[in-house]
C-alpha cells in the first residue's frame, strides 16, 4: 500500500515473479506501475504491506537487495554531462569494481548495446534511443539477478523497440529475472511469461499471455472499407466469420475478436467474393483500452477523459 496524500497509488497488489522469467506489469498511465517498481527498487517505502526480492525484505534488508537488482527507470537517469563510458565506469566503481575491471565491463556493455562509437561522447548528445540503451547498460553493470524495466520502450520507434525486446530476451536466456512494466499488451505478450494487469493500484487480472488473451478475446480483425457506405456489409462479413457481433469503435472501421489466424484468411476471401474493397485490414492484439474495456467494463482514464 502506498499513498500520496489522498491518492492511493497502490492499493492491494500481489505481484510474484519466478526466477529466470519475465513478469509483465500491464497498466495505463497512473496505474501504479512506477510506484511498485520504486518500492521494489528500495527507492520508496510502502506505507503498508511488504515486498521481498529473492527472499530479502526491501526495507529491512535494503542494502542486500541493492546488491542483486538493476533498475532502468521510466525516465533515463544517465548523467548527461558525462560520456557513455564515464557513466558506466562510475557505476562500476560504485559497485566496487577495480578501475581496469570497470573500464573493461563498460567497453563490453557499450559494444553489446551498439554504443562503442558514441562511448566517448557526452550522453547529452545521444538520441532518445541511445540514452535508453545507455540507461539499460548502466543497470546491467553489476550483472544483477533481478532487473526492473519501467516502460522501457515507451516513446521508441518500432525498430528500436525490437532492439530492446532482443536485449530482454537475451537477459532472460542468461537466467535473469525481469520485471517489465508496459502500456502495450503486444509488448507484454511478446516478452512476458506471466502478466499482471493493474489499474488504480490493484491487480485486475493475472495469467500467462495465452490465458489473458483467452479472456480478452485474443486477436482482433480490423477492417476499413474504402467505401464508407459499405460499412454494414463489412460488419456482416466479420460477424459471420467470427461468429460474434462486430463493433465499430471508430468512424468507418469495424472490429471483431477472433480465435485464430485462419479467420483472417477467411475474411479476406469473403470480402473479395462480395467485392468489398478495403482501405485498411489488419489482424492485431487488442489495445490496452480494449483489454480494459473487457476486464472492467470501462475504458482507461485517458481515453475516457
Amino acid at each position: 500500500m502506498k499513498r500520496y496524500g489522498k491518492t492511493t497509488a497502490l492499493a492491494g497488489i500481489d505481484l510474484a515473479a519466478r526466477q529466470g522469467t519475465v513478469l509483465g506489469v500491464l497498466g495505463p498511465n497512473g496505474a501504479g506501475k512506477t510506484t511498485a517498481v520504486r518500492i521494489l527498487a528500495t527507492l520508496l517505502r510502502a506505507d503498508e504491506g511488504r515486498a521481498t526480492v529473492g527472499g530479502l525484505d526491501v526495507v529491512r534488508q535494503a542494502a542486500k537487495v541493492r546488491r542483486i537488482i538493476g533498475l532502468t527507470g521510466q525516465y533515463a537517469s544517465v548523467d548527461e554531462d558525462l560520456t557513455g563510458m564515464e557513466n558506466l565506469v562510475l557505476i562500476g566503481r560504485l559497485l566496487d569494481f577495480r578501475r581496469a575491471e570497470a573500464k573493461a565491463r563498460g567497453a563490453q556493455l557499450l559494444a553489446e548495446f551498439g554504443l562503442t562509437e558514441a562511448g566517448d561522447r557526452k550522453a547529452k548528445t545521444y538520441s532518445g534511443g541511445m540514452r535508453r540503451r545507455l540507461d539499460l547498460a548502466a543497470s546491467l553493470v553489476g550483472r544483477p539477478d533481478v532487473i526492473y524495466l519501467d516502460e522501457p520502450t515507451t516513446g521508441l520507434d518500432p525498430a528500436k523497440r525490437e532492439d530492446v525486446w532482443k536485449i530482454v530476451r537475451s537477459l532472460v536466456a542468461d537466467g535473469v529475472t525481469v520485471l517489465l512494466t508496459t502500456q502495450y499488451l503486444e509488448e507484454a505478450d511478446a516478452l512476458a511469461d506471466e502478466i499482471s494487469v493493474i489499474d488504480h493500484g490493484k491487480v485486475i487480472a493475472h495469467g500467462t499471455p495465452a490465458e489473458l488473451k483467452r479472456v480478452v478475446g485474443g486477436q482482433t480483425i480490423l477492417a476499413r472499407p474504402s467505401d464508407p457506405a459499405r460499412l454494414a456489409e463489412t460488419a456482416a462479413v466479420l460477424s459471420a466469420v467470427a461468429g460474434r457481433p462486430a463493433e465499430s469503435p471508430a468512424r468507418g472501421v469495424v472490429t471483431v475478436p477472433v480465435a485464430g489466424d485462419a479467420a483472417f484468411t477467411e475474411v479476406v476471401r469473403r470480402l473479395a467474393v462480395e467485392g468489398i474493397g478495403v482501405a485498411e485490414l489488419s489482424l492485431r492484439l487488442p489495445s490496452l483500452d480494449e483489454v480494459f474495456f473487457t476486464l472492467t467494463g470501462h475504458h482507461t482514464e485517458e481515453e475516457a477523459a
Partner: peptide, 16 residues
C-alpha cells in the same frame, strides 16, 4: 500487499 520476486541464488557481489 505483497511483492515477491524470486531470483536465482543470491550472488554476493564483492564487498571491499
Amino acid at each position: 500487499m505483497t511483492l515477491t520476486l524470486t531470483p536465482t541464488a543470491v550472488a554476493a557481489t564483492r564487498e571491499r
